[in-house]
Nucleic acid binder design. Structure first.
Lengths: 226, 226
DNA sequence: ACCTGAACACCGTTCAAGT
DNA sequence: ACCTGAACACCGTTCAAGT
């Protein structure tokens, strides 16, 4: 019997790796990281849990492939900007927004260094840094700093979103709770945290993120120019 | 019967939150993140799994508290440096080294934003940035960029170490495997990744990390001076 | 070749029963 | 008040049995 014939005879879509990844993304988006179980996925796809293992190697493989699908889309959308610095900002923002929409992507990027989604990001950043025409020795340092910063913020934003989801809080309620906690810290040991506690809610994470990219680009310009 | 009397009569140490955290750190160090289970921990502490819940709220609480113990120690060791930039580099390196020794700390920092260990780090960075005497509006941007970068690299290094452990590879074997994978990527789509693949093994992550801090400090100096 | 779904070997957490 | 450890409600993954 040829591939998937039985399912198709039952009037169902063929069970393919792509279909599994699509369902996985939908489940991760709607139910969070803990919502993706092979039992739930099998139910959505009207199949048995074991059948999934014919198309994905493990849960880890599935989450990584789901992440890669989102990252590939986000990176493809950054091709239209002109100058390398603009393009680098665009890459950062595309990822920021993708992770805002799919927080689990940020967690996966932080979890699986060296895999396809992170290589895509490194490639995008590296190509633009090469176009900055820096001294040869500075190329890796500049790429590495930008990459670490961008993926690092990605992970933290994902964590914020996850906590919000788990506690059922929206962003401003979560920040209010954090502000309250921080303002109760010991005044001698934590003067800075206390001083920023009240301002937490007003901050625009996305703007802060771009400012960070600009700081690194400035540092690259002053330190690495040839 | 007073606290812990029964265990002490049996010639055992008192079951306290501190003792549980110590055992948790030892287990995380020796067996990795998946090695910390309440059953294994209870066995080490010669108690029942349920008893642990009298002293820690959940597994999440326990890992966070274990992380905080390590971070508090690392931050305390950075008090001896003179200038704010030196101190900021020292904070970064202290965390880098702590995470090198305890990779699960990096993962936890990335997972639990706003909790005690991250507040300690933010406080340390914020105090030093305040001492840089920047324009008021630039204070948060500078602190936020340094914090994101440092915690971001922490998370990625932790992930590298975790993968190495899981696959039973040392660092250079892991990098060799990555280099082989990357050099097999499509030449048109991934020219940068292919070009750095062969150099991966030679990079000093710790030095790259400090260079990144310096780039951000340079950017702060040129952009935020008042 | 692909699918099914019960079974296996785990988890974190709870809770009645002890001391 | 604190501890015990069986029980509960899950997991990811495997695998004999089907088609």
């Amino acid at each position: 019997m040829t591939k998937n014939t039985r399912r198709i005879q039952r009037g169902e879509l063929a069970l393919t790796r792509a279909a599994i990844i699509d369902a996985s993304i939908a489940l991760l988006d709607s139910s969070g990281e803990s919502g993706l179980t092979f039992r739930a996925l099998a139910a959505v796809l009207a199949t048995g849990a074991g059948a999934l293992y014919f198309h994905v190697a493990s849960r880890e493989d599935l989450v990584n492939a789901s992440c890669d699908a989102i990252v590939a889309r986000a990176m493809a959308a950054t091709m239209t900007f002109a100058s390398p610095p603009q393009r680098l900002r665009a890459i950062g923002l595309a990822l920021f927004d993708a992770i805002d929409a799919h927080p689990w992507v940020g967690a996966e990027l932080a979890r699986a260094p060296g895999t396809m989604p992170t290589v895509r990001i490194l490639e995008g950043i590296g190509q633009q840094v090469q176009a900055l025409d820096l001294a040869e020795e500075a190329l890796w340092a500049a790429t590495s700093a930008l990459f670490s910063y961008i993926v690092g913020v990605a992970g933290q934003n994902a964590a914020n979103a996850r906590i919000g989801r788990e506690r059922g809080l929206d962003r401003s309620t979560f920040l209010d709770a954090l502000a309250t906690q921080w303002s109760q810290l010991d005044a001698n040991a934590f003067p800075f945290a206390r001083s920023v506690a009240t301002q937490l809610r007003g901050h625009d994470d996305r703007a802060d993120f771009v400012t960070g990219i600009d700081l690194i680009l400035d540092g690259i310009a002053t330190r690495c120019a040839r």
